[in-house]
Amino acid sequence: MSKEWPLWEVFIRGQHGLNHRHVGSLHAPDAEMAIKNARDVYTRRNEGVSIWVVKSADIAASSPSDKGPLFEPANAKVYRHPTFYDIPDDVGHM
């Protein structure tokens, strides 16, 4: 078996105004082919106006086992949510 093409993660922006979203991955020898291939694999039904490709090796990810401590600061801060505040109805919409 000869050398495998590197793996790329593909992100597509569906319409102007939306974020790029991760849709999957593919193998390609370089960025240009990765974009061409992403166009063929992930936008057959007009799903995109923009494509980003990133080598999978370049993605840094948080570790699932760190999930608890990493996201703990947000857990007990209920006052970040609008529903924490009791504004009477008489005030009107807020």
Binding site: S2, K3, W5, P29, D30, M33
Partner: peptide, 16 residues
């Protein structure tokens, strides 16, 4: 297809 896969890879490496 081996020549195609290998050729594109060689081209990409040369460009890099």
């Amino acid at each position: 297809g081996a020549w195609f896969r290998d050729g594109l890879m060689a081209h990409a490496e040369k460009a890099e």
